[in-house]
Nucleic acid binder design. Structure first.
Lengths: 163, 163
DNA sequence: TCCAAAAATGCAACTCTGTTGCACGGTGTT
DNA sequence: AACACCGTGCAACAGAGTTGCATTTTTGGA
């Protein structure tokens, strides 16, 4: 997937909302392949959302997305994210703010088998939620008869950009 | 605080909602002292809510509380919990269900200074959230320039009663 | 003891997030 | 071309959390 981000540096045409870019034909083709690989039919909307997620290195909320795609409907974006989560393209993050965030899965992420086990960081200043994929959640030893299935660990504080 | 729980075994008079008990005069006096120790003025409502929390060994939501105190208003219970959190009587738990839960602080809990650092467990079957005060969150090593202030760790799975 | 101030309570209303139902429209298939 | 299917957009709704305001209760001082 890193290759695609590099492709993202190709010539862009600004259109619609200031935050929305349509990349080159090559980029679009690459994003299409990502969708098809995960068995998601590549519609225009989905390509734009996927591209948007690629440009962000922080987790975004449904409302963030809504504000970036003024033309589109909240429901459509909601269902697009839902589709992406179910197809293991993005993972849903509970960062303790009460608002779900979404971020692209890593290439080796195996959502269907195990939940993502990395740490998330929420900055109390800039309010952004950041995935720390290299920081795995340490093993937790539970009392007898407690059977763990998922683990969520969120650290709150000041991020690298705000400190 | 353990002493107070023992006092809770004293003779009780059932009144109002099935889940609400008024304990003995001695128990009420003890609960009053708990409130006063944390600089919260002991009203009837607060005593009942505090007693309710003592009877529960799981974290409760505002709606749980509302359903147990049919006579009272959601807003009052909301503000009661808020007061309790601010006074370091209870801590607020984000268990990832999207609904805040509340549980009594431990005796040695120092909410003002540091957030509670124990693990929470949410059972996917009985939907209850349990504090595991003896299971502290292991140290998390963050990338440079990330300054941690709070940590939240929730394990989901099957609890000891459901397994 | 009584009164005034302060605090707590109860009611109504509202915001925001998440969600569902339904109708419309485009796309692909036979 | 007809059809089914899927995605999209609109409307509406549920639930949690929250706030404003009027009323009641409690507290503290005269």
């Amino acid at each position: 997937m890193a290759a695609i981000i590099v492709l993202g540096n190709s010539k862009r045409i600004r259109l619609g909302s200031p935050n929305v870019f349509i990349g080159s034909f090559v980029l679009m083709k690459a994003l299409e392949k990502v969708l098809e690989r995960n068995k998601v039919r590549p519609t225009a909307m989905r390509l734009l959302v996927l591209q948007y997620l690629f440009t962000k290195n922080v987790a975004v909320s449904l409302t963030d997305l809504e504000n970036s795609f003024e033309k589109s409907d909240r429901t459509t974006l909601y269902r697009t994210l839902k589709t992406f989560v179910e197809s293991c393209l993005v993972h849903k993050i509970d960062d303790g703010t009460g608002v779900s965030k979404y971020a692209l899965c890593e290439e080796n992420c195996n959502c269907e088998i195990e939940t993502d086990l990395h740490v998330h960081f929420h900055c109390n200043l800039c309010k952004q939620t950041i995935c720390l994929p290299k920081h795995k959640i340490p093993a937790i030893y539970l009392p007898k008869a407690f059977l763990p299935q998922e683990v969520n660990l969120v650290v709150k504080g000041t991020c690298n950009k705000c400190s």
